[in-house]
Simulated assay, not measured.
Amino acid sequence: MKKYSVLTVILAFVLILTACGQSSGNSEKNQTLTVGASAVPHAEILKKAVPLLKKKGIDLKVKVFQDYVLPNKALASKQLDANYFQHIPYLDLYNKQHNTDLVNAGKIHIEPFGIYSKKYTDVSKIKDGATVQISNNKSEQGRILLLLQSKGLVKIKTGVDPVSATLKDIDNIKHLKFLQPIDPAILPKAYEHSAADLYAINTNYALQAKLDPKEDALILEGASSPYANIIAVRKGDQNKKAIKELVNVLHSKTIQDFITKKYKGAVLPVSE
């Protein structure tokens, strides 16, 4: 009996050591962080961050989206840990319209928004009644109007917050004709056909279409824009260590230098 008791104790001890070893092994495994992103420049920037996060014990998985709606749906339904494609005015509008509670975990970059034209190379030559094609993204209307206002083409009415301004909130100085809004993803293709005089195109879609905002845009937003692109997460997750590490890496000199060198001013890094 004594012999069996000793064997039992030894066997139990071995099992405990094995369990401890397995627990230790699991704790050393890298944490997986799945982030949804637009193809350009967001996914490109994230892929550059993969090896940097690997060193911090985080396996970054990037899921590419081609629109502005599905990434937030996927985040809200916990298919993603974070997403990276939008600015705060868009996020605020999405939360309001869909009763979600997604939050900003950190500003990463600005994509200076552009107004493009195949018919005009000089803003001063734009004729009265010129046509303007904008997207159906309502959160961008104020941004577009600010650009047009910067060149004296419209004036946002006194007392209206420019960020939330709509087409109803302007004095239309040049009597611009705003065409039926279309999906932002197809604006570059519409621009190629050039049915309108002016096209307001998001920089990520402009870059995908091989447009160079600094060279091709008739009017280009400056670096002081309030429309910085952010890492968005579910409320409370902004305090998670992996999310903070992600934001810190995207603010690192390595990533900021990459953004500056690759996009040559079409995308501007933000370090706050």
Rank of each mutant, 00 (worst) to 15 (best):
M1E: 13
K2G: 05
K3H: 10
S5K: 14
L7H: 03
T8A: 13
T8G: 11
L11S: 14
C20E: 00
Q22V: 04
S23C: 00
S24I: 01
N26S: 10
S27Q: 12
E28L: 10
E28F: 04
T32Y: 15
T32E: 12
T34S: 13
V35W: 12
V40A: 13
H42T: 00
K47V: 12
K48H: 04
K55M: 04
K56C: 00
G57P: 07
D67Q: 15
V69Q: 09
V69S: 09
A74Q: 12
A74V: 07
L75K: 06
S77C: 08
S77F: 11
S77D: 12
S77E: 13
S77T: 14
K78Y: 15
K78E: 15
D81M: 04
N83L: 06
N83D: 13
Y84L: 07
H87V: 02
Y90L: 07
L91E: 08
D92L: 03
T100L: 08
T100H: 06
L102M: 09
V103L: 04
N104G: 15
A105R: 12
H109S: 15
E111K: 01
P112Q: 00
G114Q: 03
S117R: 01
Y120F: 11
T121C: 06
K125N: 10
K127C: 05
D128P: 03
D128T: 14
G129M: 04
G129P: 06
A130E: 14
T131M: 03
I134D: 01
N136S: 13
S139L: 05
Q141A: 04
G142H: 00
L145N: 10
L145V: 10
L145A: 10
L147S: 01
K157A: 11
G159E: 00
V160Q: 11
D169C: 01
F178N: 02
F178Q: 01
I182V: 02
I182S: 02
L187Q: 05
A190Y: 05
A190I: 00
H193R: 12
Y199P: 07
I201N: 00
I201L: 01
L207I: 08
A209Q: 06
D212L: 11
E215S: 14
A217N: 08
A223V: 12
S225L: 13
Y227N: 02
A228M: 09
N229R: 07
N229C: 04
N229F: 02
A232M: 05
R234E: 08
I243K: 01
V247F: 14
N248K: 11
L250W: 01
S252P: 02
I255K: 07
D257T: 10
K261Y: 02
K262F: 08
K264L: 05
G265P: 15
A266G: 13
A266P: 13
V267S: 07
E272Q: 11
